[in-house]
């Protein structure tokens, strides 16, 4: 379907067939992404027997769980016309703080609470700077991102700090064969998706991103909404930090930070969320995250040099950007 086509009418029948219920999620808007994902799956499964195994797929999904949580927060804030470049750096700070707390004997539960509270506070500070000064969130969060990257190194003194076994039950555990990390990421994505579609707060994000002047004149407390969005993104970054540390077992330099952030931004943009705001879907973001994870895994299994693997995110992003533009043009 094209961008200029109208959204699907709201269905009035309660017992619509499954197919039309699914189309309510607007998979049709992401048909290009689904086709590309399918093509990658087919090509790779021909080239590698290990690819289409339950083990490998679960492994890929477990690996992208952290990025999915960050990307979910980004989807919401980018829909509202802002961006938060500091999320993954905030994640790095969280892993550092959490590992230090645990290694110095603080109980895991308390440590997690403190680390997530700090992450949320960092998000709130981002929001306060953006709202009170009116500076562009692009610049403000890029600045805080580098500050936080440095802070994370400072906290662990540039060393690797182990969190011991305290988090490994969560990091490597499973429920009915599904990793806890993946369950967490899925829960966050669904919660963000429901928020965007079924809460006034979520619809406010669309209105603010679409036209902030109209949003304010319509009685939306734009500043308060932004503060809440940035704080929520801080919280999600903190959650991502807990997940990351649980998976890795130690906070090390370069765990997260700006390069991870750029991958998350890429996934969101690949998923069709507008950089200018006013448009965004969590389904697209989830597909974007999965696509990037699958491509990295495929290149790995196909034995492609790791240098090329590093280039894959950029290549996929470029293709998605060009394809989106071509689709827009053909819709006119």
């Amino acid at each position: 379907m094209t961008d200029l086509k109208t959204p699907a009418p709201i269905r009035t029948s309660g017992n619509a067939p499954l197919l039309s219920k699914l189309s309510g999620l607007r998979f049709g808007n992401h048909i290009g992404l689904i086709v590309v994902l399918a093509a990658v799956l087919v090509v790779t499964s021909i080239g590698s027997e290990a690819f289409l195994t339950a083990n490998n797929i679960i492994n890929v999904l477990r690996q992208v769980s952290v990025i999915a949580v960050i990307a979910a927060g980004l989807t919401l804030i980018m829909t509202a016309g802002d961006i938060d470049f500091s999320m993954a750096s905030n994640t790095a700070v969280t892993t550092a703080v959490l590992a230090q707390l645990i290694s110095s004997g603080v109980p895991a539960g308390t440590a997690i609470g403190i680390a997530i509270a700090i992450a949320t506070a960092i998000g709130l500070v981002n929001g306060l700077v953006v709202v009170l000064t009116g500076a562009a969130s692009f610049v403000v969060t890029l600045a805080t991102a580098t500050l936080l990257d440095g802070l994370a190194l400072l906290v662990i003194d540039g060393m690797s700090v182990s969190s011991g076994d305290s988090l490994s039950a969560y990091g490597s555990g499973e429920l009915l064969g599904i990793p806890y990390l993946l369950i967490t990421a899925g829960f966050v994505c669904i919660a963000v998706g429901v928020t965007m579609k079924f809460t006034v707060f979520g619809r406010n994000a669309f209105a603010i991103g679409g036209n902030p002047d109209v949003a304010r004149l319509s009685g939306i407390a734009v500043s308060r909404n932004k503060l809440f969005l940035f704080s929520l993104n801080g919280l999600l970054a903190g959650l991502a930090g807990v997940m990351l540390l649980s998976r890795l077992g130690a906070a090390s330099p370069g765990n997260a930070g700006l390069s991870l952030e750029l991958t998350a931004v890429a996934a969101v943009v690949i998923g069709g969320t507008a950089l200018a705001g006013g448009r965004g879907t969590i389904v697209g973001t989830a597909l974007g995250v999965i696509l990037l994870g699958v491509v990295a895994n495929a290149l790995n299994l196909l034995g492609v040099s790791s240098y090329y693997q590093a280039m894959s995110v950029g290549a996929v992003l470029l293709i998605a950007a060009v394809a989106n533009q071509l689709r827009k043009r053909s819709a006119r």
Binding site: P7, A207, G210, V214, L217
Partner: peptide, 19 residues
């Protein structure tokens, strides 16, 4: 200053009332 062009007619109609 009046309507959010990208949002649907229905949402625009109730944009301020619901707030």
């Amino acid at each position: 200053y009046g309507l959010v062009g990208g949002l649907s007619v229905d949402e625009n109609l109730l944009l301020s009332r619901d707030r």
